[in-house]
Amino acid sequence: MMIKYIFYFLAFVSVFSALMVVVSKNPVHCVLYLIMCFFSIAGHYVLLNAQFLAAVHVIVYAGAIMVLFLFVIMLLNLNTQSEPHKSTWLKFAAAITSGLLLVILVGTLKGSETMVMPVGNPNAGLIKNLGNTLFKDFLLPFEVSSILFLVAMVGAVMLGKKEIK
């Protein structure tokens, strides 16, 4: 019962903050709302008994990536005056494409409420089970994705260097 109310609260916060990300005029406010959105999603993870995912979500997304976002936006010092003017046909095209996206989303989700979800292990999100799954069943994809990260890191360092000797 309690969990139900917590879920509704978190769902409200995440939808509200996600909307505010799009609606806010000030880019710094957008980033802060996005951080709030990430926190509420971390809350959803906790409700799903996936504490590890929640903690990592907060550390990586809310704690590291969004700080870099804030850095860039604070240093750019964006405000309403320096906002580039968008032409009418661009707005028109944006409205049409997002409308199409909405149609597709509604189409795919239609009838999903009658579907029965397969019930998995409710403790799959605990760190012990997650570790076992990652390092036993999905060892190769896990390692490959870590190599992907390494490549991205090396690439970032290369791009960040002033000159290559």
């Binding site: 504490q51 903690a55 990592v56 907060v58 704690g63 590291a64 804030l70």
Partner: peptide, 25 residues
């Protein structure tokens, strides 16, 4: 006694940055 104690600590630590950043900005 949550089973992710150390990670929780790091999560809180990483939010701590925002106090300084928001205040400074």
């Amino acid at each position: 006694d949550i089973n992710i104690g150390v990670l929780y600590m790091f999560g809180v630590l990483s939010i701590g940055v925002y106090g300084v950043m928001i205040g400074g900005w």
